[in-house]
Design a protein around this nucleic acid. Structure first.
Length: 559
RNA sequence: GGGCGCGUGGCCUAGCCAGGAUAUGGCGGCAGCCUCCUAAGCUGCAGGUCGCGGGUUCGAAUCCCGCCGCGCCCGCCA
């Protein structure tokens, strides 16, 4: 049978169940049943009124009336429910065939999408609070690619803002000989922190910072060269940390390059713009947009542009290359985004802009802040993860360089997974032990399970055959059923912009495999049963590896 | 004050959008399992007024209303 990849195998059985019900003249669709009550169920409560019978009687009656088909091994009334039990043989056949043929991974090709993530101010190293953005963003990009989109990942460098000007002032006016960090993001952050402190206290410093901003916007060539060099170096430090986490950016867009275009955009919007003491703002009410705040400023009174205007220009530019734009943003950007979306939508009605908001990672003592020096840096978290993984590997007999490689992969995977496994809109309070957990709901649990499957396949080679009628164990069935859900999980994750859904699925898959592993011996099974179980393990390996890579984790054949 | 989001055992968390049968798992705690495919695994035990109060419904963790608590926002910052 040929199956549309967008529809998972379970859907075939569901439609069959719906058809059987419809044939009995009942206009209802089946629900998923609870564990232990079959696969689908038809609750009969709502039919009670119409037929003037108890739900249990109705269920019983339907049980006797319903047509027998090969799709279900059993359809039975249990109290007020009519429960459907899928034929294990049929599901095993379809499910294994979909995975082993690779058909399950065939998603239809889709349009281009530009996904923007991170876009952190290049004033210092990425801290863990900010790292939620690239981890979610990168995983989302992987999922959307798998789903068929042509994804371009962009990083928008906020080099034209106040924060960067503050850092530049610090680099020009301060001197710390004791700072010897190799990476610029770490080497310069002290200059940013100290310059921030000084600007809070001294008006002359604030004026000098403003002067830097004005000169940069007006295109002072020496200053531009200086800023690009320094900020470029900080940015490289950030991108290097991201690469260590398997995160890659396709295009870097410098905000300052958009200033001339921003000014044109402001002219286009002039009918909605008002003046306030030499500054200019857009009046949302004039635009017909009802929003919490009415005034969004585009220009300062000194004539320099503001982030809001540059961001509008940036999105308009993006909308020229792709009609679907996705922004990964902290929840503090909600209001900003709402206004931005309304304005860009007015200037270009063809574009779809969707946000992927996430709540912050904070410390028990409060929000992380680079400026105030209250933050845990991503680089330090990675180093600590590596150290802890090495500690565990010490007790096992790995050659030194192999242990190093494995430890690094475990650290990367654990950190990514600890972020991905939490619903995006839930706030996270950072704890070392939770971020670097190696057991339970963690990346090592998932990867270890994958390694177990590999170990079986290394010890017994599969001859390529399988026998659906021998696949009858409940744990075999549960695993195959869960694997068959992959297309709908991926679809939901892509359409709802929620990598977290796939992270949950990865855990369920691993857990289910461990149940199978416990109850269903493979290598010691006989002949055809052994081959059939090897087919399941093989299918699991293929699917699990796919999911691990989609989450940006590192599959290890052995650990 | 207003807007948005979140509130589930000691800690973390699933389910909520599309209301149904014993509320999912993890961490921590206790007790077990390596002559048998890797113990980063598995099994068992203890632990819950699903923030509070109303409402809708045959039925509410789930939907609606009100309240309380926490987070974020309401900048000529980004």
């Amino acid at each position: 049978m040929c199956i549309d990849a967008l529809m998972d195998v379970l859907q075939i059985f569901r439609e069959e169940a719906d058809r059987l019900i419809k044939e009995m003249g009942i206009d209802h669709r089946v629900d998923n049943a609870k564990e232990g009550f079959g696969d689908f169920t038809l609750p009969c409560f709502s039919l009670a009124k119409k037929y003037h019978k108890s739900p249990a009687e109705i269920a019983k009656e339907l049980e006797s009336k319903i047509e027998k088909t090969s799709y279900f091994e059993r359809i039975e009334a249990v109290g007020p429910y009519l429960n459907f039990h899928i034929s294990k043989t049929k599901l095993a056949e379809l499910s294994l065939n979909e995975i082993l043929s690779g058909n399950i991974f065939n998603f239809e090709k889709k349009e281009k999408v530009i996904l923007e993530h991170t876009s952190a101010n290049p004033t210092g190293p990425l801290h863990v609070g900010r790292a939620r953005n690239p981890i979610i963003g990168d995983t989302m990009a992987r999922i959307l690619r798998e789903y068929g989109y042509d994804v371009e990942v962009q990083y928008f460098v906020n080099d034209a803002g106040l924060q960067v000007a503050t850092l530049i002032w610090g680099l020009k006016n301060l001197n710390y000989d004791d700072v010897k960090e190799a990476k610029c993001d770490h080497a310069y952050v002290k200059y940013y922190q100290e310059a921030s402190k000084l600007s809070e206290m001294r008006e002359d410093v604030r004026n000098e910072i403003r002067a830097i901003m004005q000169a940069y916007e007006s295109g002072d060539p020496n200053l531009k060269k200086f800023i690009r060099e320094k900020i470029g170096c900080v940015l490289e430090g950030i991108l290097q940390s991201l690469r260590r986490l398997n995160i890659y950016v396709d295009t870097v867009v410098w905000e300052s390059d958009l200033i001339p275009f921003s000014k044109k955009v402001a002219e286009e919007l002039s009918q909605y713009v008002d003046e306030d003491n030499g500054a200019y703002y857009i009046d949302m009410e004039k635009m017909g947009v009802k929003i919490q705040k009415n005034r969004f400023y585009l220009y300062r009174s000194d004539g320099t542009t503001l982030y809001f205007l540059r961001d509008i220009a940036y999105h308009l530019n993006k909308s020229k290359i792709a009609r679907y734009l996705i922004d990964v943003l902290g929840e503090d950007h909600k209001l900003h985004f709402e206004a931005l979306k309304a304005i860009v939508g007015l200037l270009n009605p063809n574009v779809t802009i969707r946000p992927l908001f996430y709540a912050f990672v904070s410390l028990p003592e409060g929000k992380m802040s680079t400026r105030r020096g209250r933050a845990i840096y991503l680089d330090d978290l990675l180093d600590e993860g590596y150290r802890r993984a090495m500690e565990i590997l010490k007790d096992r007999d790995y050659p030194e360089n192999e242990a190093r490689k494995i430890a690094e992969k475990i650290a990367i995977s654990s950190i990514r997974y600890s972020i991905l496994n939490v619903q995006e809109e839930k706030p996270i309070v950072f704890r070392w032990d939770q971020a670097l957990s190696f057991e339970g709901e963690s990346a090592p649990f998932i990867i270890y399970t994958f390694a177990r499957a590999n170990s079986i396949l290394k010890k017994a080679s599969w001859n390529g055959s399988y026998f659906p009628e021998l696949i009858t164990h409940p744990q075999e069935y549960k695993l195959l059923k869960l694997m068959a859900m992959y297309p709908s999980v991926l679809t939901e994750s892509a359409e709802k912009l929620s990598p977290y859904l796939l992270a949950r699925y990865a855990y369920s898959l691993a857990m289910q495999f461990n149940q199978f592993y416990r109850d269903c011996p493979v290598i010691m099974a006989e002949d055809n049963l052994k081959e059939s179980r090897l087919a399941i393990v093989n299918a699991f390996k293929i699917l699990m590896e796919r999911v691990i890579v989609l989450l940006g984790l590192e599959p290890l054949e052995k650990m």
